[in-house]
Simulated assay, not measured.
Amino acid sequence: MIIHNLGENNSLMNKFTAEIRDVNIQKDSMRFRRNIERIGEILSYEMSKSLCFEKSEVSTPLGTKKMDLPTDKLVLCSILRAGLPLHQGLLNYFDGAENAFISAYRHHEGNEDEFEVIVNYFAAPSLQGKTLVLIDPMLATGRTLENVLKSLKDYGTPAQIHIVSVIGAEEGVEYVSGIFPENTQLWISAIDPELNARGYIVPGIGDAGDLAYGEKL
């Protein structure tokens, strides 16, 4: 897997990433969602540089201009619910993309640390020959993306897969690298060193879904 860790270079994105980590700023859920969205926009811009382009003639009021324009048929696939603000960030830039949504969540039996990932809803167009963008803000253990990959098989084979995340753990990134095709590209704003006993990224941000939309039962 090709890894693009954009947090390794100084940019305005570091400010947005710092704010979603900050326990005081996290109290403002609207700002949290907007920062996730803005990170998605920056990751989209960087990812766009890797897409396929062809020359196209554009008519202006005073003439014509040949420009290189992207040709990939994109499908943006968001993992509910935490992926929604990040999905919107990508959709702001890839406004002509098709969209897919999958529900994948952790089930802790008896509130134990061990968990399984359950997928019970998936709505998607055909993926055959298209560029699939998997949107998961927190790449922790990598098991959610593994289950999503298994669920995609009935929808066709993408020509290319990109994964867009906000924060990942080294362990999860390594795990995903071993199960996705070698030419898969990961676009991420930061990679943290470890997971805690319950599989949350440390230092991370906490539960992205709860921070964006409120705590769940």
Rank of each mutant, 00 (worst) to 15 (best):
residue 5 N to L: 05
residue 8 E to L: 14
residue 13 M to H: 04
residue 17 T to E: 04
residue 18 A to M: 12
residue 19 E to R: 14
residue 22 D to C: 04
residue 24 N to R: 12
residue 29 S to Q: 14
residue 29 S to C: 03
residue 37 E to V: 00
residue 37 E to G: 05
residue 44 S to N: 04
residue 48 S to K: 14
residue 51 L to T: 00
residue 53 F to I: 03
residue 59 S to H: 13
residue 60 T to K: 08
residue 62 L to Q: 10
residue 71 T to P: 08
residue 76 L to Q: 06
residue 80 L to G: 01
residue 88 Q to E: 15
residue 89 G to F: 11
residue 90 L to W: 15
residue 92 N to T: 13
residue 94 F to A: 04
residue 101 F to T: 13
residue 111 N to P: 00
residue 112 E to M: 03
residue 115 F to I: 02
residue 117 V to W: 03
residue 122 F to W: 07
residue 124 A to F: 13
residue 125 P to Q: 09
residue 128 Q to K: 14
residue 132 L to G: 04
residue 134 L to F: 12
residue 134 L to S: 04
residue 140 A to S: 14
residue 141 T to V: 09
residue 152 L to P: 07
residue 152 L to E: 01
residue 152 L to S: 07
residue 154 D to F: 11
residue 156 G to F: 14
residue 157 T to Q: 13
residue 158 P to C: 06
residue 170 E to F: 05
residue 171 E to Q: 15
residue 174 E to C: 08
residue 178 G to L: 05
residue 180 F to T: 15
residue 181 P to D: 05
residue 184 T to D: 12
residue 189 S to W: 07
residue 189 S to M: 11
residue 193 P to A: 06
residue 194 E to I: 05
residue 195 L to E: 04
residue 199 G to L: 02
residue 201 I to H: 11
residue 203 P to L: 12
residue 211 L to K: 15
residue 215 E to M: 11
residue 217 L to T: 02
